[in-house]
Design a binder for these strands. Structure first.
Lengths: 379, 379
DNA sequence: TTGAAAGCGCTAACAA
DNA sequence: TTGTTAGCGCTTTCAA
């Protein structure tokens, strides 16, 4: 085995020069159509594989921009972890002659297209090339801007389940349907354990689902799956599922508080990271203020993973979270995008399936990216 | 930023040649003590970092051997996934001038030291150098052979929680204590949901724990954690925990069957991959043969992830498994070992903490390494 | 013990 | 459109 095929070999056997082989292998501009075909055929035939280290050695820096909401305020729950994963991978890629520019924008998810527009215009004006872009896309306007980037030759990776866009390099994804099913399964487990027979026949069997805003496609999928699971599994006398859409914080909190006061639900499911925080915080507070009613406390099933959850796991407010691995999503996207830019494979539309994790009190810590936790050195 | 420090720079500023710098940086044989010190100081001072791609380009192939039990018979449940993860990473490393030799030995975990002995003797006889070794270590004899490998200059990575060995490069690990706690939490959830008030006050509240063989240190940790959790959480009237040690298949099955017949337990926890299969298979069979008694069926909480589980998740026998990410353990070990061999950092004893996952019916698929599942291409 | 020099396979600049 | 050539930073061989 030993020696692999090099561009030199291909140049020799097609009777041309290494430069032409190189050009044919990369995009192909500047080579005759005929020669190019012959070279590509020979490369295929001889199982040519690029030697990435050699390529790296001489190549100019690859410019990758990461554009995501700043992990602050309401965006901190979800984007905090995402940024962490990306930061970790970025550190690795620094060594590989990549320049990763990380831009945390003040535009939230809802006006994100403005951030894309701004980046597009700026880089056009400064005449700087962006080889790769890691970002999110949750609405049509953003999709339009991303398409512009792609047309201009930028490879794009999306870190989130999102709109399908033509020519995207890769995107990370988990099954939202499985998230909905799993959330309901957990709600069932924790609530059935609690209810006394009296409560159960009391008419106030009600499960609350706090979902994301109505216009996201994933919102409907989550609630449909949860609803279906509820009917399938709760054979007799299923509780009713009451759905709210996360609007603003104050309303979610006020709603919840009045329910706890008058008509405590059997369980609360939150389908978004921020609402998970609001719900836990509100419930924890309510039963601190009304310790006598603690036996009514509904179990909370949340979404995503963020540091503030630890407290709620500890005091028993939060029972489980459905975690879509956003920490590794960012890592995988960046890494895949880089490999794509470096390698010869220019395939598009790769879906990076992320595992769907269930996190409870006792395995919470093992998911933290904390340096105290990871890669500790013994002896 | 731009240009980094190279060995050339160091050679210039210490007034010597690149060759000496190289020698000083790697082990240092063949350089005068004085010169070596000056070079290392200068490297430190100027924050020299090796350029791995340049290093790779010229270097001879790195030889890494993976030695693990063949994923067959009883070993297939655990080692099947491990091999898969390693195979995946190996494919990636092929491109980076590594030769990964994968040896599936017929020696099982219990006589694994013989496999190590054989490898050691063979490679000594053939006079071939093994730069890195990925393997397991669960007993003193194996530890002794591994120490010999290390002394001979082989870097060793262990894919499993195991005995502490001096000079090991890295090992993958999850918290067995958290595994035990989580298993009991799940057993509680699924059994409390099932029991009618009558059953609950019936005296036959019993949870079965089928653990690994007694001499493994992790065995004790798992059962201790489970027991503690049982007492803490089951405030009133906790069921008793009956522990069996997985010996051979036939006995586990026979024991279980007679229990199902005479005195069905409230839940069954299995702490090993193979026992999980035996238990599920036996329980599924029993209630196929005795469909009338299905309401007595105890929920099973298993360990690890393997393809045969799908069936048991579907038919409701298996409720949840505690999964120690052995798929990524192998990947991470191999990858870390390679980086270690390639880079200049020769730190030892890195623990690669793996997340502890809870897998249920609805997120089972998202953990499968299946090509149908991972990196699917759209459009 | 030290140094000089020839590449590793590829990229990019330049020349034809 | 095509070919020639000079390195990238490092490892390795050979000679001093």
């Amino acid at each position: 085995m030993g020696s692999r095929v090099t561009i030199k070999d291909i140049a020799r056997s097609t009777g041309t020069s290494v430069a032409s082989v190189h050009r044919a292998l990369h995009g192909g501009s500047g080579v005759g159509e005929d020669l190019r075909r012959r070279i590509l055929e020979e490369a295929q035939r001889s199982h040519y594989q690029i030697d990435e280290s050699a390529s790296l050695l001489r190549r100019s820096m690859i410019q990758i921009t990461v554009l995501l909401p700043k992990p602050e305020k309401n965006e901190r729950f979800y984007y905090g972890g995402l940024w962490q994963g990306i930061t970790r991978e970025a550190a690795r890629l620094q060594k590989a002659k990549a320049r990763i520019r990380m831009i945390g924008t003040d535009y939230g998810v809802d006006q994100f297209s403005h951030a894309l527009e701004k980046l597009y215009d700026e880089s056009a004006m400064m005449n700087e090339k962006i080889d790769g872009l890691v970002t999110i896309c949750d609405d049509e306007e953003s999709a339009a801007w991303i398409t512009r980037f792609i047309r201009r030759g930028t490879a794009v990776a999306l870190v989130d389940r999102s709109l399908p866009i033509n020519g995207i390099t890769c995107c990370a994804e988990v099954s939202v349907e499985d998230m909905g099913k799993t959330a309901m399964e957990l709600a069932g487990l924790y609530s059935r354990g609690k209810g006394t027979p009296k409560d159960i026949r009391d008419g106030r069997r009600k499960i609350i689902l706090i979902n994301s805003s109505r216009h996201r496609s994933s919102t409907k999928v989550f609630s449909g799956a949860a609803r279906k699971r509820l009917q399938e599994e709760w054979h007799a006398d299923p509780p009713s599922l009451v759905e709210y859409h996360e609007t603003e914080e104050a309303r979610v909190r006020a709603n919840l508080r009045s329910m706890l006061q008058d008509d405590p639900p059997e369980a609360v499911i939150s389908a978004s990271a921020r609402a998970t925080f609001w719900v836990c915080d509100e419930i924890a507070r309510f039963y601190r203020e009304n310790p006598g009613r603690i036996r009514e406390r509904p179990p909370v099933i949340g979404t995503d993973l963020f540091p503030e959850q630890e407290e709620f796991f500890e005091d028993g407010t939060l029972k489980a979270v459905i975690y879509q691995s956003h920490l590794t999503s960012g890592e995988h996207c960046l890494s895949h995008l880089f490999d794509h830019l470096v390698g010869l494979d220019r395939s598009c539309g790769t879906i990076l399936h992320q595992p769907l994790c269930i996190i409870m009190k006792d395995n919470y810590r093992s998911f933290l990216p904390d340096d105290l936790q990871k890669n500790k050195v013994i002896s």
